[in-house]
């Protein structure tokens, strides 16, 4: 059975939720690993959970990216291990340079917690292959610094190489300004690296993995990642 490491930074707060879904809902092994002592070579996949690492002081994810686990994460990414960064995890991945662009304060500069619709833009990655092309899924967001920013030529490259995983959309799958909750460029909600083994996303798949919580679309992302390991 694959082993997933869920990294705990000081201030992470979705670590236990993520472990619960991987273990109790999907039935795979997940360990909580404190950032200072985690040995990633023992694991087949890594999740950077949501939260406020180091209180989001300085800039969301900036301090966590400077800790020594940063190098281990880069190595794991090079080795092709699947890495999923959720919310604060996505911010850490951009700060580490494992994903391109940056995440900044929402265009309406308040925290925003709600369920949103996403259009699945790339269905070929290990994380998204359980979805149909252009499928519309429902996941919750909860962030204040989730506005994705990038510019050309990088932005065009991302589009051309199919690295945009999810876009904020309406229920019908139309990518509109009104359906963009934070002002992200191109309505980008999730991004994959060139190699296809690193996904960063602002919405929370672990919060939408059980029927009782209203949506199970998120489970497919985690499941896709875990099943790719075998």
């Amino acid at each position: 059975m694959p082993k997933i490491s869920v990294i705990q930074f000081p201030g992470s707060n979705c670590d236990r939720d993520t472990k619960h879904v991987i273990e109790d809902v999907i039935g795979c092994r997940a360990d909580l690993n404190w950032y200072e002592s985690a040995d990633l070579s023992n694991y087949d996949g890594i999740v950077l959970p949501g939260g406020f690492s180091y209180g989001d002081y300085l800039r969301a994810g900036a301090i966590a990216a400077q800790t020594k686990i940063g190098n281990s994460l880069k190595r794991a990414a090079r080795e092709g291990k699947p890495i999923l960064g959720i919310c604060n995890g996505f911010q850490i991945l951009t700060e580490l340079g494992l994903l391109k662009g940056a995440l900044t304060t929402n265009s309406y500069p308040k925290f925003r917690c709600e369920h949103v619709y996403l259009k699945v833009n790339n269905t070929e990655s290990i994380f998204t292959r359980k979805f149909d092309k252009n499928e519309v899924i429902n996941l919750p967001i909860a962030h204040k610094e989730g506005r994705y920013y990038n510019q050309d030529p990088e932005l065009s490259e991302l589009k051309n190489s199919n690295q945009i995983a999810f876009k904020y959309s309406n229920k019908e799958g139309e990518v509109t300004k009104a359906s963009n909750p934070n002002g992200s460029c191109e309505n980008i909600a999730g991004l994959i690296n060139e190699k296809g083994n690193v996904l960063g996303m602002m919405p929370h798949p672990e919060r939408a993995s059980e029927d009782i919580l209203g949506s199970t679309d998120g489970k497919k992302i985690l499941k896709g990642m875990i099943e790719s390991i075998n």
Partner: peptide, 14 residues
Amino acid sequence: IYKQYDHEVQIRTI
């Protein structure tokens, strides 16, 4: 008001 509060963390909120 309540959109500014994370009301789902800890995944208990039905």
